[in-house]
Design a protein around this nucleic acid. Structure first.
Lengths: 326, 326
DNA sequence: TTGTAAGCGTTATCAC
DNA sequence: GTGATAACGCTTACAA
């Protein structure tokens, strides 16, 4: 691989002059420029980005740590984020914990070693201090660590409220809502559940929260669970759950001969493409992943260029997509 | 950020001794080691991976270029590949062309500049020479560039044959198969279509290939198309298509009141989790993405460590997953 | 066992 | 407009 010095030698100039041509950082006479460009061409010269990064102490790479790369929500998000990073000249290092806490810790250590300029965290299984003492620009998705790390999050309160209002419109009497197992951290998506309960209870509507262990790709398991629940609690006439379990409820309800939305009103939370795959048109609270991604990227890049560890956190509006299940 | 020299100074030794402790590359007296470790600790020292990479001319990052990050096939593949890379101490830079040829070219240029150790290409829209003259370890997925670049591919011939045999078993008379628009390159998945046609024609079964423009997330569009096709050509009693369009045919056929598999036999090609989302159990030719990923990673890492640009190409077996649509 | 010095490929600073 | 020189943080001969 030809280096900048090889080019310089061949063009009969100093390395720094080549660098100037490369970066347009100072004026170079037309004659020298041509000689240099010729030499670059002949040597098939490509600047070594590693050396540049080392000098600048900045690699142009942003890491994103997710629980799963294939999950529709995270892959959709990563898709948007990659596009937006690209616009700003940054590259995406996409890393998955695959649900392993150990791996989250290891990746976090890797991220410390200057290979990436910033970190987008879509997982948060470690103790809070692990993030708080992290000394690089970091942004948390959907999780508020006592304001110590900036976060971006969908407006789940509004989401929960919208869902509640939809259940009320449908004159539901007993609404089930499923969420992931809770931790002690302030996972912001729980807000939607809190708000849902609160609003419904104000209207005298019974609610029931159920914490389940996600296994995002076991639709069969979800369907069985849904069927069991619907049979065990026939008085349930409203369900809010993430896309996949919501789909499972939709399918289970149809199998059981329930009329939708009369007997069962279903609201999916997230609104990923998963909902498009089935024939039915499920009502959903849709997270605006595009707007979300824009904010994430803007915030992290701001943190990098201003070397401020603390940026403003952002709330992204959600919308109700009316389907035939409400 | 503390550097290795800061640590050395604090411990009262030379930088290289610290390096030796860090890498275990030579024996260091217990006493010095302790001093050094203490200093590292106090300074909260973290080796600068960029500097290391620069010296070693190796970043430990592998780039993967896909047409879309969110597409179930590619996100599943990336998921496996990331896991396997992790095992070998490599990181994944996941990049998407979003279908843009321009962007493929730009990313390819970025990859040339030493920031990544190797490239996994799941796109191939440029002229062949763009890949052939690429001077870094590169592996092509599903595409054979006259043997110039090693590739990994599912055994699509076997896949096509399996599908054909399934149609034959179902006593189909007219089989439709959908594939993406063809290019002049040797895209290896076309093999399945060729083999399907060949095998069916040997049995006197009519076939019809249809090239369609993919828009992987417009299930509604697919369903409309499927419905139109099934109405226009009622004599079609067999369909092979990628997961998403296959699902669309399944749903359209049910809507039209066709009996499955008697009136219409459907075989999905790929076997991603998309098939699990719908209630029906669609027969599929399943690509073994895990085995696939293992081969991809093994091959690219071999190319890197042996600095051989040409490795052996690999064929990964596919399997038939019997469902209720055949 | 440990230190000195050179080098990886850039770019910035300061002369000229 | 151009060139020396040093520096980014690390590792590896080579020497002591």
């Amino acid at each position: 691989m030809a280096s900048i010095r090889d080019v310089a030698k061949r063009a009969g100039v100093a390395a720094c002059t080549v660098s100037r041509v490369l970066n347009g950082t100072a004026s170079v006479s037309e004659e020298t420029r041509q000689k240099i460009e010729k030499a670059m061409d002949e040597l098939n010269y490509i600047p070594n980005e590693l050396a540049r990064s080392m000098f600048k102490q900045r690699s142009g790479i942003i890491a994103m740590l997710v629980p799963s790369i294939k999950h529709p929500f995270f892959s959709s998000l990563a898709d948007f984020i990659e596009k937006e990073l690209y616009v700003h000249g940054y590259k995406l290092m996409l890393c998955s914990t695959s649900g392993s806490i150990q791996r989250e810790r290891e990746y976090l250590n890797i991220f410390k070693s200057n290979l990436v300029d910033g970190i987008i965290m879509a997982v948060n299984s470690l103790e809070e201090s692990a993030y708080e003492r992290f000394e690089k620009p970091m942004i948390m998705l959907d999780c508020n660590l006592s304001g110590k790390i900036p976060f971006v999050v969908s407006d789940h309160k509004a989401g929960g409220k919208m869902a509640a209002e939809e259940f009320i419109k449908n004159q539901c009497h007993y609404v089930l809502h499923l969420c992931a197992e809770k931790e002690e951290k302030e996972i912001l998506s729980y807000e939607s559940h809190r708000m849902l309960e609160e609003t419904l209870e104000c209207h005298g509507i019974r609610t029931r929260g159920l914490e389940i262990k996600w296994n995002h790709f076991d639709l069969k398991g979800y369907r069985d669970m849904a069927e069991l629940i619907l049979q065990t609690y026939p008085e349930i006439d409203g369900v809010m759950a993430a896309d996949m379990p919501a789909v499972a409820f939709y399918e289970a309800a149809r199998k059981l001969g329930k009329k939708i939305p009369e007997d069962l009103c279903i609201i999916a939370y997230d609104g990923t493409y998963v909902l498009d795959i089935i024939e039915g048109n499920v009502t959903a609270i849709v997270q605006n992943l595009e707007a979300y991604s824009l904010e994430v990227v803007e915030t992290i890049l701001n943190m990098i260029s201003n070397s401020e560890m603390l940026a403003e956190s952002k709330y992204i509006p959600v919308t109700l997509k009316k389907g035939e299940t409400s």
